[in-house]
Simulated assay, not measured.
Amino acid sequence: MTVEEFLVWAENRPGRHELVDGRVCAMAPERAGHARAKIKAQRALEDAVARAGLPCEAMGDGMTVRVDAHTAYEPDALVYCGTRLQRNDIVVPAPMIVVEVLSPSTGFFDRHGKLSGYFAVPSVAHDLIIDIDRRLVIHHARDGDAIRTRLVPSGPLRLDPPGLELAVEDLLGPPST
């Protein structure tokens, strides 16, 4: 299945799905901690965009990132810059920051398969993986032809480009049960 065929197929289907190498993958139901972490991440990114005064927008899950002709992911949050998406757009054509919150069912794929997929998209400069159990952000950043990885348990996090500054604690929120 191509991404175009997938988008038509998925439009009126219940549940969330991604397309990986032409195969539809259903996404497991979320746990409360995962849902809270996604909201915190989106809010932290929205606040950072507002503080920086950039022509960017942070969005929560549900938007599609096209990796190639047969692969499309739905990150838990993302930031893109430039022309504002139209009301009925489904695909974010040039995401700059993608965020995945680790979950027991998808953690391995989020850390490995999606990482290489996201960085196949030329506009992606940062992949943030939020590990709510370890209270840690794994920050992958494009550095020329290489990808730099940092483990960031606390403190400031600079995402340049596009020029955002936020605290890891804002992404993680307070410890929860």
Rank of each mutant, 00 (worst) to 15 (best):
S123G: 09
D160W: 05
P122R: 02
T71N: 07
S123T: 03
P29D: 15
A52L: 11
D170P: 03
G62T: 13
I138H: 01
C56Y: 10
A120V: 07
T106W: 04
L166N: 01
A146M: 07
V98P: 00
V67T: 04
G163A: 05
D110I: 01
C56M: 08
N12Q: 14
D133Q: 09
V168D: 07
G113E: 11
P153G: 08
S103Y: 07
E4S: 15
P95R: 04
A50W: 05
P122A: 02
A32K: 06
P93E: 14
D76P: 09
R13I: 12
E74I: 08
E18F: 04
V20K: 05
Q42V: 11
Q86N: 05
P122Q: 02
P153L: 11
V79K: 01
R31I: 08
G22F: 02
L151G: 08
H140S: 08
A58N: 03
P174L: 11
A125H: 03
G144K: 06
H140Y: 14
G60V: 05
E165L: 12
C81F: 02
M27C: 12
L128E: 00
D89G: 09
G155P: 13
F6Y: 12
S105E: 15
P153V: 01
A28N: 13
V168C: 07
P174S: 14
P93D: 15
G155D: 15
V67S: 12
L157M: 13
R36V: 14
R23V: 07
G53D: 09
E5K: 06
L128D: 00
I129T: 01
A146G: 09
P161A: 04
D76T: 09
W9K: 02
A167L: 15
V24F: 11
L7Q: 12
R84Y: 11
E100A: 10
P174K: 08
A37N: 01
I132V: 13
A69H: 07
H139K: 04
T2C: 14
D110Q: 06
G53H: 08
F108N: 12
G62R: 04
T64L: 10
G107H: 03
M63T: 03
S116D: 04
R13K: 10
V20P: 06
G62E: 06
K114T: 09
W9H: 04
V168Q: 05
G144N: 07
F6R: 00
F108A: 13
N88K: 15
I90H: 05
L7S: 13
G33Y: 00
D68G: 05
K38V: 11
F108I: 14
H17P: 15
F109K: 08
I138N: 00
P162S: 09
G62Y: 10
P75E: 03
E169D: 14
I129R: 00
P161H: 04
R111W: 08
M63G: 09
H17E: 15
E11C: 10
I39W: 02
G163S: 05
C81L: 09
E5T: 14
D47G: 07
